[in-house]
Design a protein around this nucleic acid. Structure first.
Lengths: 300, 300
DNA sequence: CGCTGCCACAACCGCGGGTTATGCCGGGTG
DNA sequence: CACCCGGCATAACCCGCGGTTGTGGCAGCG
């Protein structure tokens, strides 16, 4: 099985036609046609049945599909890795973080950094944790910031600081004097709650704690990011459980917040590759992030 | 990145030399040399440093290593799948089972089958559960038998029958009249026990149950298969928890056995691909397996 | 000191994979 | 129905990649 055949097979499946595939691969249509035939009689079975002059994947082709696409994917990743290796550290600071942290924490840290080191180039990404690990491994970026312990064995993880899960609510929900007191989980019973479907460790823990509340909170809307939950709460849709960074964003104009009484901590992690030691700019950046985060977490 | 380069890179890493790699790929040494240089100046960095006329992988090469080997692996699997697709069902009955079941159950069933269908060709494999799923998916084989629920979404699984976890002991360990009474888990406290490190669902469940016994069983030997545990028990090394098939093998000459009092069942599963319906021979075979297994499990 | 094992370079060659040009077929459209 | 167009296959041609053999340099070793 030549690589060309694999690429071609994939291209035909995605574009749906031979000419489309040929365009995708930057070759002429007859070249694609001939290659496909080569592939087929090398395999010993038809990949596509020619019906009415069009191509239609056969049963066998569908069996190969998933596996072939995995290989294509892996090859793309290999390519990314090699290009990133061949052009090393063009940029002194390449950071990726989750959407939550991209809201205020990371921009603030970046702004502070550029006061200390004016004119430093930087690249910022926002990615969810799984993709983040991939980006780091593939050297698309050098530092990852996340609230989830990814448990990725090929990455070094450093806990920058810890905080509490926060409950946010529309203004006037609680008397002002209660805002500093932690809210017990049981107090959520029967309350309108924005559901979090974030599939990280924190999300799962929250789910399992909430499952024990009786009567269960009334949840009609489910969201996939903490930021969406915040926006809904600000519009009076109910309460939500969020990380302290989301709780703090927007200066709390449109919401009230108070800590949730829970032994579960929210931890801010920095991730980086163990083989590439951090340069001074990166270290300074992490120090700034930690400092800002501690500031946010101390004042709840 | 040409596929040839990937294969070459892998071959050099495994053989340690260019000439070795060339032999592995059935090409001449100069061809390999030239290809490697092509690869390197296409990548933009050296894969191997030439020291004293020998090749030594560079730092960058080591970064690529894992990923490249994954791709090679995937390509091999794709090749297996395609050859299995192009030569369909040469053999009417291709079965894979775990070592435990290969001891007596599967051979017995096969013998019975060949009485009903004399001269039927068959292929037998023994594999652990993960590899088993791969073999089925790659169409190396058609039916898998295992005691573990693999939860593999691309495979159909059928529970053939259920049984109890058994405790086996050297002869004379228990009075004969107790042998039919289930042994409570607590009775294992302080007893000499052969540890099972099988990493399947059953093994994990047993581990967690045993962890609650106080004082814990005295375990000095850990084994990786139930069969090894049986052999050690037969030599007087202590007790062991095993599946009922292992407990029954060898006609129980050298051991005593009795059920373990546990709500946990041992389930015998048949696995097959949902897209390929079973032929009569295969169905008959599964019926025989079920029948024999029920016989074994009924008489504990 | 020569032998051996390993790698690089040179010169050569065949074929795989590309090109353009063309024809066939079926479906949609005025 | 006539027409065109989109899509695939075939033919003829061509180039360079990936292979070959032959040779030379270099280290290590008996």
């Amino acid at each position: 099985m030549r690589l060309r055949y694999i690429e071609l097979f994939h291209a035909v499946l995605t574009t749906g036609s031979l000419t489309g595939a040929a365009k995708l691969l930057n070759i002429s249509q007859p070249a694609a046609s001939k290659a496909l035939q080569h592939a087929e009689d090398q395999l010993g079975f038809e990949l596509f049945s020619r019906v009415h002059g069009r191509l239609q994947p056969t049963q066998q082709a569908l069996l190969l599909r998933d596996r072939v696409e995995r290989i294509i994917q892996e090859l793309h990743e290999l390519k990314r890795l090699t290009t990133n290796i061949s052009q090393p550290e063009s940029c002194p600071l390449r950071v990726t973080c989750t959407p939550t942290l991209a809201q205020t924490l990371v921009p603030d840290a970046m702004a502070s950094l550029r006061k200390a080191f004016p004119g430093t180039a930087a690249e910022l990404f926002t990615q969810h944790s799984l993709v983040m690990c991939e980006s780091l491994a593939l050297r698309d970026t050098d530092i990852g910031l996340t609230l989830q312990d990814p448990g990725h064995q090929n990455l070094r993880q450093q806990a920058l600081c810890r905080g509490q899960v926060m409950v946010i609510a529309p203004p006037g929900w609680w008397p002002d004097e209660e805002l500093t007191q932690p809210l017990p989980v049981s107090a959520l019973a029967g309350q309108p709650l924005i559901g979090i479907t974030v599939r990280d460790a924190l999300g799962n823990m929250l789910q399992s704690h909430l499952a024990q509340v009786d009567p269960p909170p009334r949840t009609s809307v489910w969201v996939q990011t903490y930021q969406l939950a915040y926006s809904l709460v600000a519009r009076g849709e109910g309460l939500a459980l969020v990380d302290p960074f989301t709780a703090r964003c927007g200066n709390g104009q449109n919401i009230q917040r108070r800590p949730l009484k829970l032994h579960l901590d929210v931890v801010l992690y920095a991730l980086y590759r163990p083989d590439s030691p951090l340069n001074p700019v990166q270290k300074r950046f992490l120090a700034l992030v930690r400092q800002l985060a501690q500031g946010i977490l101390a004042d709840n």
